[in-house]
Design a protein around this nucleic acid. Structure first.
Lengths: 351, 351
DNA sequence: CCACCATGATGTTGCGCATTATCGAACCGG
DNA sequence: CCGGTTCGATAATGCGCAACATCATGGTGG
């Protein structure tokens, strides 16, 4: 009894059965009657009944085409969206993005096909911009291609970045206030009596690192700290060597601040290996959050409000999309929350 | 220099600029030239160039309406897609889905807006089926609404389920072979000399639970086990009570099998509290995987191949989408891998 | 009895694309 | 020089819906 693939019922089907016009059906279904457009309750009920009996559902595609917006927010990442190792990195952002999108009635379009043959991702593949599928886009990830971004904006495409980018011209982005948060960490250590603070900055550059550096510099000036021989550039993958740590200790360091929590954790291991007690003899702090499920003492650090950043990004984007006029690009900085943790204590070495 | 909100370029724009017809543009863009439809490479290149210079992207909505493919795979979950607590549950599926989609050149459309006012999700909200935007859909989650699924299928919408569903009529789904894996766990325990095995099944029903029960039943028959007074129905949220565990021990249980790893973990705590040594005096096993980042001994259990399930689901779906004729619905069962773990040992109580 | 207005609709158009059915020109053998 | 064939394209149509402009009817006041 399998008849030809049953077509979905359309408004015109309802119209025919109910003895009204397709226009009327549309008005009734969308509840668009008002003072100027009147459909008596009786007719409305009738149309609804027929619609129900047919199992009618609006075709979102046709509606979109007629109306303009897809109600789709693109999510674009420059790396794989669901990586095994970055697990804890993207996830909180996505949680926020999903929550906001859901609240605002948008669906999420995750771009995965944009991967080039070289493995790297690019927005423009064969000159075609897949992103256009979405009404606007939230962009996430570390290695943003500036040229692509500029081109995107010049095409009039709406997007919001998560993470600050120094792009020529105005863009809207949401970031965390790394500079301030860094300042608070320094304040904390200084408040504990530390005067010789070793600073392990990130070797690979980027705007977030720059912000942390700026925050540290400001705090350093504020407290009149001397950092002679106490600054070290460290690669995330390698961490500092034991030799380097020994040198910093020899230079009088009583506290360590590392950009990456991974580096801070490695530091803890090294110090333990040297018989240096943390936080008894020496304090360690990180300028980002520690991975959730890592055993060991809680780091002195700050939490990056990733969830909130995701939400704000979507909210800003939707605001842009739904306003008629051009919206001025905005930069939003969300505060980080300081975590005292258990790896910092008062300085016992009186200088 | 701010001009009126720039419209997206359309095929007709390209056509005008390139001096060809919109039809030609469509053919070129979609690479639909063949023996019968010929466009010389020169013209093609030209059209592509103009398209690129305009930053053209296909409008998925229009294309959809016209009956074409969007190269969009929908991902629909009956609960929040990125939940904080289910973190480890969905993620591996998504990893697999993304990988397969990327490999096959599809983008992912995550449906979040389908959440009803009651908080629960339904495909049909106010009679609107958003899913139609995607070419097909991968469906994920625990509380599938059977009626919705049947309706979807009858509308001719293509989808693949992750997780088995007993839906009237044929559907394609990918699941794990829980029955077999359960059997292997039982075999393992029996091999260690256990004859009195307590079985903690899930109180809230569902196909996966049923499969485990079936697997257990088969193994029980195979080994001639007596389970008198050893079967307990347990709610995941609560776990068994200390009293219940004591009763099972009194009934001679030397090993426990729990559906949920959470329950198994709680069991471990309870046994420890009673001074029962695991795995010395008593063994514990789970019929699912333990959360990754949970401290404590590794559970005897099996790993559900979530990543692979996600990949297979996408592959099956794309296969359906890209074949001309109707594809016979298929049920795929992927094997689980047994994990010996550290919570089971040989039975010391000689019976 | 007509002019006028409120009521309750309807006909038409177009969103951007894919598809179908054609069409003109060039070429080629006889 | 003409019928056929290949090559390279095109005009027209429709997908399902919303927006816009328009229209028939009946009652009411003058």
């Amino acid at each position: 009894m399998k008849d030809a693939p049953r077509r979905r019922p359309r408004q015109s089907d309802i119209a025919k059965l109910a003895g009204v016009s397709q226009t009327t059906v549309s008005i009734v279904i969308n509840g668009r009657h008002s003072d100027s457009i009147r459909i008596p309750p009786e007719t409305r009920r009738h149309v609804f009944e027929v619609a129900r009996s047919l199992g009618y559902t609006i075709d979102p595609v046709a509606r979109s085409l007629a109306g303009g917006m897809n109600h789709l927010i693109g999510v674009y990442t420059f790396e794989s969206l669901f990586p095994m190792d970055h697990h804890d990195f993207y996830y909180p952002f996505l949680v926020g993005i999903e929550a906001a999108a859901e609240a605002l009635g948008y669906d999420l379009l995750m771009f995965t096909s944009a991967t080039g043959s070289d493995g790297g991702r690019s927005i423009y593949r064969e000159g075609v911009n897949r992103l256009g599928l979405a009404d606007g886009c939230v962009m996430l990830g570390k290695e943003t291609n500036r040229d692509d971004l500029v081109r995107l904006r010049d095409e009039g495409f709406r997007f919001v970045l998560i993470g600050r980018r120094d792009v020529p011209g105005p863009v809207t982005y949401v970031t965390a206030d790394y500079a301030n948060a860094t300042g608070k960490v320094v304040d904390h250590l200084v408040g504990l009596g530390h005067e010789r603070i070793a600073y392990l900055t990130a070797a690979d550059p980027g705007e977030p690192s720059a912000d942390r550096d700026a925050g540290f510099l400001a705090a350093q000036t504020r407290h009149g700290l001397d950092t002679d021989g106490l600054v070290l550039s460290v690669r995330k993958e390698e961490g500092p060597s034991a030799e380097e740590v020994r040198r910093l200790l020899a230079a009088g360091a009583t506290a360590f601040i590392a950009h990456e929590s991974v580096v801070a954790l490695r530091l803890l291991d090294l110090l333990a290996g040297m018989g240096v007690d943390v936080p008894g003899e020496c304090s360690v702090a990180a300028l980002s959050d520690a991975p959730d499920a890592v055993p060991g003492p809680e780091l002195t650090c700050f939490r990056i409000p990733r969830r909130e950043m995701g939400m704000r990004a979507v909210e800003l984007l939707v605001q842009q999309l739904e306003s008629e006029e051009e919206v001025e690009p905005r930069a939003v900085e969300l505060p980080c929350t300081f975590v005292a943790g258990q790896t910092s204590g008062s300085n016992r070495k009186e200088s």
